[in-house]
Amino acid sequence: MRYEADVTIELKSGMLDPEGTTIKRALEHLGYSPESVKTSKKYTITLESENIHDARENVEQMCEKLIANPIIHNYTITLREL
């Protein structure tokens, strides 16, 4: 089966997010009042797997080994069958 995984990488809570802070300031400059702005990165991965369970396990390993840095990141995976 073919699957598509959306992997979202976020900074762990409590970590500084300088990019988010800068964007928040710029929004305030434009007259908006956001409570907070946080940045994240999304990767879309297409893969072949026996089933959705295997696909998830595979993508989790990819996150652990490369895509996320466990010291600073949390990640979430959303999978769908293609």
Binding site: L11, M15, L16, P18, E19, T22, N69, I72
Partner: peptide, 15 residues
Amino acid sequence: ESGLLAGALTTNMYP
């Protein structure tokens, strides 16, 4: 990143 040293290097506070 390779695990040979502790910690991580993230975006400068003033980015």
